[in-house]
Design a protein around this nucleic acid. Structure first.
Length: 439
RNA sequence: CGGAGUAUAGCUCAGCCUGGUAGAGCGCUUGCUUCGGGAGCAAGAGGUCGUUGGUUCGAAUCCAGCUACUCCGACCA
């Protein structure tokens, strides 16, 4: 992409409405633009990041055996009356009336709808296990939206729903998502710690929030430091028993503020491993048994011929929230520092003197070569001054900057800069290109 | 939803207290000079001062209603 032909409205000043760093940087770097309280337009650069996060989530869901579909944003109130949640949900649910005076709602979640799809099609345990997911916009009419996309009213979420014959099957389904989540967040350069969450009236131990640690996190969390350093499971066989992997993580202490037990924390975790930090919830998995299947009559016949409500769980990842969360976890004074896997571009080529024959030719050559290597490059071919170019590139956080200027070229070198480490190396254009291409 | 604020140029803000018809910096346009860390000089464009009403000879300024946004709290993927 040529910057001169792109749409990247960056801001020098921090907009007054933004309080936390990710919100400020998202506005300044031209990722989003607020349209109403808690509702954002995604500008091209932000959309690229959103799409890359979405792609990683999708790949890992598919790998874990979940199957993608797409349910609508608008739902009929009928289904919600069946589950009883139309009245229970309260003002957080955005209700809409159509021209025929029918009650609709903008979905805050999809348990009822997916249960309806399930009950109208699946009859036998032979069709289980089943896990259906989608990545769709949701709306929750928060009393007080804040923190930019971290706590918006409209948000993009991956939500998966598992269906199993019995609790053992549901636990296996839960474990698959648990493991998939560890891999998903690790691929984004995040270290997410699963923390025991409140299971509400269902009880049991099958609910975890996945928390990433960031200084500006919204809530206080407590855990064993070993959990943070634990490597992701990686390539596992999702048909195998995943209980050992899950147990390795759930055996160690980890709790959010609401679930924290200071006495247990001190008894179970050696002092040097006690970690108290701020965290951001980026995922939540939950087993809720037959709560919806019973109310909505979603049953299957078991091998014994008996018809019983299907056992369900749901598994959410806040896709749009992750954009903000990653920035909270990865930024510096100058701007965003994107992890490689979700950066909007892989490399920025800075032509320090657009219009100069030598730098134009070298920059064009670099851009073409990088493209052939399968890298997404952003070529700054604008007439801005070098200082302005450096500032913008650091603000938008592209992992690598290839700086091509007249002074360097006269000496036969360009400069390769790494955004995260700040390292800079002068080397020939060709070796810079081969270094980038081989990454 | 309770409490507190804000609304003036694309952005950040001043002007309001003490009423007399609107300013700065940045950004934008044009020209010249510059050119390795958000350049310099010069010339320009850009605002029914959120909205409705009231007070007044006269309202960005005072008063009231409305709307939007922000912050603190409660709530929350």
């Amino acid at each position: 992409m040529r910057l001169s032909q792109y749409f990247l409205p960056t801001l020098r000043d921090t907009p007054a409405e933004a309080q936390i760093v990710s919100h400020r940087l998202m506005l300044r770097a031209g990722l989003v633009r607020q349209q109403a309280a808690g509702i954002y337009s995604w500008l091209p650069l932000g959309l690229r990041v959103l799409r890359r996060i979405e792609a990683i989530v999708r790949e890992e869901q598919n790998r874990a055996g979940a199957i993608e579909l797409l349910m609508p944003t608008l739902q009929s109130a009928q289904l919600w009356r069946e589950s009883g949640r139309y009245d229970d949900y309260g003002a957080e649910m955005l209700r809409i009336v159509d021209r025929h005076e029918r009650d609709l709602l903008y979905g805050p979640t999809n348990e009822e709808m997916v249960t309806d799809i399930f009950r109208s099609t699946v009859r036998s345990y032979r069709d289980l296990p089943l896990n259906l997911y989608h990545i769709q916009w949701k709306f929750r009419d928060e009393i007080r939206p804040r923190f930019g996309v971290m706590r918006g009213r409209e948000f993009l979420m991956k939500d998966a729903y598992s269906f199993d014959l019995d609790e053992a099957g549901a636990r296996a389904a839960y474990n698959r998502m648990f493991v998939a989540y560890l891999n998903t967040f690790a691929r984004m350069g995040l270290r997410a710690v699963p923390m025991r969450a409140d299971t509400g009236p269902i009880g049991g131990d099958l609910s975890h929030e996945f928390i990433i640690l960031a200084e500006t996190g919204e809530s206080q969390v407590f855990c064993d430091r070993q959990l943070v350093d634990m490597p992701p499971p990686g390539d596992v066989d999702f048909r195998s028993d995943l209980q050992p992997i899950v147990e390795a993580r759930t055996a160690l202490y980890a709790a959010t503020e609401e679930m924290h037990d200071a006495t247990r924390f001190e008894r179970e975790v050696p002092e040097e491993r006690r970690l108290s930090a701020r965290g951001i919830e980026v995922g939540h998995i939950f087993y809720f048994g037959d709560k919806y299947s019973k109310a909505m009559n979603a049953t299957v016949h078991g091998p014994d011929g008996v018809e019983r409500p299907v056992q369900m769980g749901s598994y959410g990842i806040g896709v749009s929230r992750l954009v903000g969360a990653v920035i909270e976890a990865s930024h510096d004074e100058a701007g965003i520092v994107w992890p490689d896997a979700i950066a909007p571009f892989d490399v920025a080529v800075l032509n320090l003197r657009a219009g100069d024959g030598a730098t134009d030719a070298a920059a064009q050559h670099a851009y073409d070569t990088l493209g052939r290597s399968g890298l997404e490059a952003l070529l700054d071919d604008t007439a801005e001054r070098p200082g302005a170019k450096f500032s913008v590139m650091e603000l938008i956080g592209i992992p690598w900057q290839l700086v091509i200027g007249p002074n360097g070229l006269a000496r036969g070198v360009v400069e390769l800069r790494h955004r995260a480490s700040g390292e800079r190396h002068e080397l020939s254009l060709e070796s810079a290109l081969s270094k980038l291409g081989s990454r």
